[in-house]
């Protein structure tokens, strides 16, 4: 393992985790209206993928976007203010949690229409190909997106026109109602292997352990290189572990605020329904254990890293809560450019 790369991944993943813990805490106390989705459990996939994307790449993501936008470098204060519907938000409070969007960082629209994301990313790939600057279109979506029709149409077009489209499916359902129950993902999809869908269109489709940022990084780097070389789209299915708090609509911090002592050994792993999560499935604790295994001053470094991330999120929260609500007189602003 490249230890420094591990630390970089961990910093990104901790930023995502502490951000989502802040969102979950604010959500639980009713600090913002509407339903929302957290990225907890999928941090390793996002950190690995974004580590190899380039500035000219154009990205489409979904309702579960917070981690993606942060990984690309969005300001956590502006992101949190957007979730709170504030004027200082990334999108001046017009989009909210489901639509965090940073076009200056290469994002196209962040859609809550799950299948749309694949189509929008195919369009981004079309634009990148037209410009010829080596950029690629990237679609980040969940397994649910493949239940809709647009991804099929978009993948077919991307395959026919050899668009530089990287399809990253973050499957967070496999152990929720799929493999763990003897099917895959039996309740909502007739296909018993999601890779067969792009596979039928001749799109190379691989599966990777979404809990391992190094594996995701390698897979995305290889796929992106293929896209950049003009060989057409590639599909990656990252298998992530379903987090217990990932209830439909209103998540709750079922596993509490992450205690890195469970990685250092200072905190014993509690008995109960989440023991498996703490011991094996939490990607943040897993990576923390890997970097700690390097020995030396790594325990102190981990504490310092977490303290810095927590300070950043604390500042973000103060900024977001201090940001004013938008002026009602501006409600129809930005209907047209």
């Amino acid at each position: 393992m490249d230890a420094e790369q591990g630390w970089r991944f961990l910093e990104t993943m901790l930023l995502m985790r502490r951000f989502e813990e802040a969102v979950g805490t604010l959500g639980a106390r009713g600090a913002f209206p509407g339903h929302y989705h957290l990225y907890i459990g999928q941090e390793a996939t996002g950190a690995g993928a974004f580590s190899v994307l380039r500035e000219q790449d154009r990205i489409a993501t979904t309702h579960r976007n917070h981690g993606h936008v942060l990984a690309r470098g969005a300001d956590p204060g502006a992101a949190l203010a957007e979730i709170l519907g504030r004027e200082g938000g990334l999108n001046r409070g017009r989009g909210g949690t489901i639509h965090l969007c940073a076009p200056d960082l290469g994002f196209v629209s962040t859609s809550g229409i799950v299948g749309s994301v694949v189509g929008l990313a195919a369009g981004a790939a079309f634009a990148c190909k037209g410009r010829g600057d080596g950029g690629i279109g990237v679609a980040l979506f969940g397994d649910g997106a493949l239940e809709e029709g647009i991804p099929f149409e978009a993948m077919n077009i991307a395959a026919l026109w050899k668009l530089p489209l990287l399809l990253l499916c973050e499957n967070n359902s496999a152990d929720a109602w799929g493999m763990a129950k003897g099917g895959y993902p039996a309740l909502v999809h007739a296909a018993n292997d999601l890779r067969a869908i792009p596979g039928a269109l001749g799109i190379p489709a691989i599966r990777v352990e979404g809990i391992d940022p190094f594996a995701v990084c390698d897979a995305v780097a290889t796929a992106a290189a293929r896209c950049r070389a003009g060989e057409g789209p590639v599909f990656i299915e990252a298998m992530t572990r379903r987090w217990a708090g990932s209830a439909p609509l209103w998540p709750e911090l079922a596993t509490g605020i992450t205690d890195l002592g469970m990685a250092t050994g200072e905190t014993p792993i509690p008995e109960g329904p989440h023991a498996e999560w703490f011991a094996r499935n939490d990607p943040v604790l897993r990576l923390a254990r890997l970097v700690l295994a390097q020995g030396g001053d790594s325990a102190a470094r981990l504490r310092a890293l977490d303290a810095a991330v927590c300070a950043r999120i604390g500042a973000a929260e103060r900024f977001a809560l201090a940001s004013p609500l938008p002026d009602p007189a501006t409600a129809t602003d930005f209907t047209f450019a």
Partner: peptide
């Protein structure tokens, strides 16, 4: 191909990406 939703999505995404 005969994919009105697909080409509409493609056009929208391409426009958002500068085309």
């Amino acid at each position: 191909p005969t994919a009105e939703g697909g080409i509409a999505a493609l056009g929208v995404g391409a426009a958002m990406a500068g085309a």
